[in-house]
Amino acid sequence: MHALTRQGLRAYLDPQNVHSSRQAAAQGLVRGGIQILRNPSGLIGAAIIVLLVLAAILAPLLATHNPYAQNLQQVLLPPGADHWFGTDNLGRDIYSRIVYGARATLTIVCIVSVIVGPIGIIIGATAGYFGGLVDTVLMRITDVFLSLPSLVLALAFAAALGPGLDNAIIAISFATWPPIARLARAEAMTIRKSDYVAAARMMQASDLRIILRQIIPMCTLSVVVRLTLNMAGVILVAAGLGFLGVGAQPPLPEWGAMIAVGRQYMLDSWWTVTFPGLAIVAVSLAFNLFGDALRDTLDPRSAR
């Protein structure tokens, strides 16, 4: 295999010169990535997502004020040179709170995906692989969860678990795994019939081994795509929970909760709700745009 030096990288990505399946996969990823970024929506989406990640990591550098520092002499100041997005009812700098709020949003999106992906895959793959009674039981359970809109379900779980960011994440995960399981099941059902699974069976591979080694790897790509597409929805549900007061709790800077507080002052101080709202719109728009571009790349039929 090539060493990943500067010269070597170019050679490594040369499609005429493929030596391993890992190299082929890497090339596929790079080509797909380039194609997504050529798509204007993909580029805009990716740019905003990068911005979000940077804001979360570099929050202390980007913020102009301490997001928790109250200043009762400076409450509800309109946007100006000192406070770019104005201040809230406790005199805290809204811009700095929005920058720090990126952390809450990113945390929710990442952890929910990390929880929901494996759960959805395991349940879906098991149901799809075994079929029959296992499938019926698992899909009935999925149906029950699907019979409630995700925000309502998340609300119900959040109510049961109590307020707080951690509980909100768990609640959102409970509410968003069913579509993933459905997808993984559909994939597993087609893979189950394939020749290489038949071959594995013939070699007396155990069910567990087939699910882990054959089915789950093949489901992963479409599940990852679906998770990306879901992220915009996750962000909106999280913001909704924050807004209703069952998500992140004050004084933690979270955009939905900031809007909930700002709501009481919005008629005189529009900036208290406007800027956190714009942040939510930008990020969920970004995930929608990126998800669209991702799907266009993987499924050329829908593109043009």
Binding site: A232, G240, F243, R263, T274, G277, V281, S284, N288
Partner: peptide, 15 residues
């Protein structure tokens, strides 16, 4: 459409 499902309904309501 994109704006439609990227905008939190509660925020639009406030606006």
């Amino acid at each position: 459409g994109l704006i439609g499902y990227s905008t939190p309904a509660f925020w639009a309501g406030m606006g």
